[in-house]
Amino acid sequence: MRVSMADVAERAGVSAQTVSRVVNASPRVDPATRARVESAMADLGYRMHRAARALRTGQTSTIGLVVSTLASVGNSRMLQAISEAASARDYALAVVTVGDRGIHDAFARLRSQGVDGAVVLNEATELARDAPPPADLHLVVVDSPPDPRFSIVQTDHAGGARAATAHLLSLGHDTVHHVAGPAGSFAAVERERGWREALLDAGRAVPEPVRGDWTSASGHSAAAALGEATAVFVANDQMALGALRAFSDAGREVPGRVAVVGFDDIVDAAEYRPPLTTVRQDFDALGARAVASLVAAIEGGAPAAESVPTTLVVRASSAPG
């Protein structure tokens, strides 16, 4: 049996008009009443009829996600987090990838699906920054320098990199080498910045970073070029996996002769051999904040910027030099 607004109103002890205001995201409901109505909706299993709401409000309760690729672990984790956060707010999610036709085509495809706004993810953010933002599409960009045109949600990449580098230095290493990510990636640039600042603050030499492309194969190639480095901060866990294999191929025991720290704390990081010390990126919080920021923009809020902290997770791949 379909649950009606009247059923929700009776459960919450409010009028049907108040329930309608909550459903339509009206600001004319105090927070305590809104929470009571939303609790009643959840208890009764009430679901909005999207087509009816679209006719009433001009909004489809659908948001978009623009992404360059879903091949990387980080992007896949963000897709899952954003999908779950959107579902929790009773929004549908439309996903488009930026292909050969570029970011404008991606935005056009989202418009054709009637989305109320979109989250632009990671590598696609550089394309979004270089393009005039569509006037009819609210945007939240994940991982981007400050930009007054849209809301920004980002991980504290530099802070996590500083923590990783300081950890390795505290173990007695003279300096820390870096396997960096792609030059066009905001996350890679910020992680490299944090690593560099930590070394300069400690008065240590700053080796030339070796760059990869986020894949384990590129991490293997980069680490093989590091010579006799005794401590390495790798810009993501997938490249760190390749680095561990490169050191093993060269007969350089980890952590006995070289200590390794990654970034992301992907699901399998604790299963690497040895288990990988890494910087944990909170993908769930990042996705939830991105969706919350987008919904706020759709409802008339001003652009804002948020940063999600990271956590250093120490495992067996790092040890005293």
Rank of each mutant, 00 (worst) to 15 (best):
V120I: 13
A163W: 07
V96S: 03
Q154W: 00
S68D: 07
T165Q: 13
A106W: 02
A161I: 00
S76E: 10
Y91C: 02
I82F: 14
L139C: 12
G159I: 03
R109S: 05
A124C: 12
I152G: 03
L79E: 00
Q154Y: 01
A71F: 03
V95E: 09
R162I: 02
A118D: 08
E84Y: 03
L121F: 13
A86S: 12
T155C: 14
A81P: 10
A124Y: 11
F107A: 04
L79I: 00
L137N: 08
D147M: 08
T125W: 10
E123L: 04
D90I: 08
H138F: 06
A106N: 06
F107P: 04
I152S: 03
S72P: 06
G74F: 15
D100C: 03
G99V: 07
P146C: 05
T125D: 10
A86C: 06
G117H: 06
V66T: 10
S83F: 14
A124H: 10
V95S: 10
D90N: 13
G114K: 04
A106G: 07
D105G: 11
A135K: 10
E84K: 04
D147E: 10
L139W: 12
A166T: 02
S144T: 09
G159A: 01
A118H: 06
T125Q: 09
T165D: 14
P132A: 05
L79D: 02
R101E: 15
R101P: 15
A88E: 07
Q154S: 05
L137E: 08
R111V: 12
L139Q: 11
D143N: 12
A164G: 15
S76L: 12
Q154A: 04
D143F: 08
A163P: 05
R77H: 15
A81N: 05
V66S: 08
R77N: 14
L139E: 12
V120E: 11
D130R: 01
L110C: 13
A71I: 01
